[in-house]
Amino acid sequence: MVQTDNLKFQYKKAEPLFHFPNITLEEQENLLILGKSGIGKTTLLHLLAGLLKPVSGSVMIDDVQINRLSHSQLDTFRGQNMGLVFQKNHAVRSLTVLDNLKARLFFSKKPIDLAAIASLLEQLDLKETQKKKVNELSEGQLQRLGIAMAVIHNPQVILADEPTSSLDDENCSAVMQLLQQQAEKNQANLVVITHDIRMKSGFKNIITL
């Protein structure tokens, strides 16, 4: 479950105050957040992830008000319960694909399940790359690795930042399906922020900022 109430954020006192609409997602419900650049989409995603603290209001993830957690509590909660798909891949470039996924599980304090890793690599068409270093991957493979790292630890919430903005129509559809399939497999909420209106057809719940 994801719920926000009266969420506001301001970077500096002289800058505009962002006031975001309330969000309520029940178990396994997904949400698309649309809006042009500069409207606050990424800010909202970072608030949902606990990477920013609101000026006022609350963010609840499965009955935990994350903006009241300490830094260490929040780091632990985020690592165990959230999967983040960023525009820029944050995999460790000196490690292999397999070792990046092992490291993700280790830092999430989750068991390193090689069978689960193998299954996920198969689903995301990355099986042949598992022994490759990250800097040997294509852009498409990097993107799929980003999805794998976001879901390998079975998060309750998957948050994706502009996952299709630089893709053609075929790859846009493929990435959207991958995200939704992984959210369904993990019984997780999927929240995608984008300015890419092509994604509208895949979501029932849509908010336009």
Rank of each mutant, 00 (worst) to 15 (best):
D62V: 04
D63Y: 12
D63V: 06
Q65D: 13
R68F: 06
R68Y: 03
L69W: 14
S70M: 12
S70Y: 14
S70V: 14
S70Q: 14
S70E: 14
S70H: 13
H71K: 15
H71Q: 15
H71P: 13
S72G: 14
Q73T: 06
Q73E: 08
L74V: 11
L74C: 12
T76M: 15
F77E: 04
R78C: 07
G79M: 13
G79A: 15
Q80W: 10
Q80D: 10
Q80H: 14
G83K: 12
L84C: 02
L84I: 15
F86W: 01
Q87A: 12
Q87K: 10
K88Y: 06
H90S: 06
H90P: 00
A91I: 12
V92Y: 10
V92K: 12
R93W: 00
R93I: 00
S94D: 06
S94F: 09
S94G: 02
S94T: 08
S94C: 02
L95E: 07
L95I: 04
L95M: 11
T96Y: 01
L98Y: 04
L98I: 02
L98C: 00
D99E: 15
D99L: 10
D99R: 12
N100C: 04
N100F: 03
N100K: 05
N100S: 01
K102E: 09
K102T: 07
K102A: 08
R104T: 13
R104F: 02
R104A: 11
L105K: 08
L105W: 02
F106A: 07
F106K: 09
F106W: 09
F106R: 05
S108Y: 02
S108I: 00
S108R: 08
K109P: 02
K109M: 02
K109W: 04
K110G: 02
K110A: 07
P111G: 06
P111Y: 07
P111F: 10
P111M: 08
P111K: 07
I112M: 02
I112R: 03
D113G: 06
D113H: 00
A115K: 07
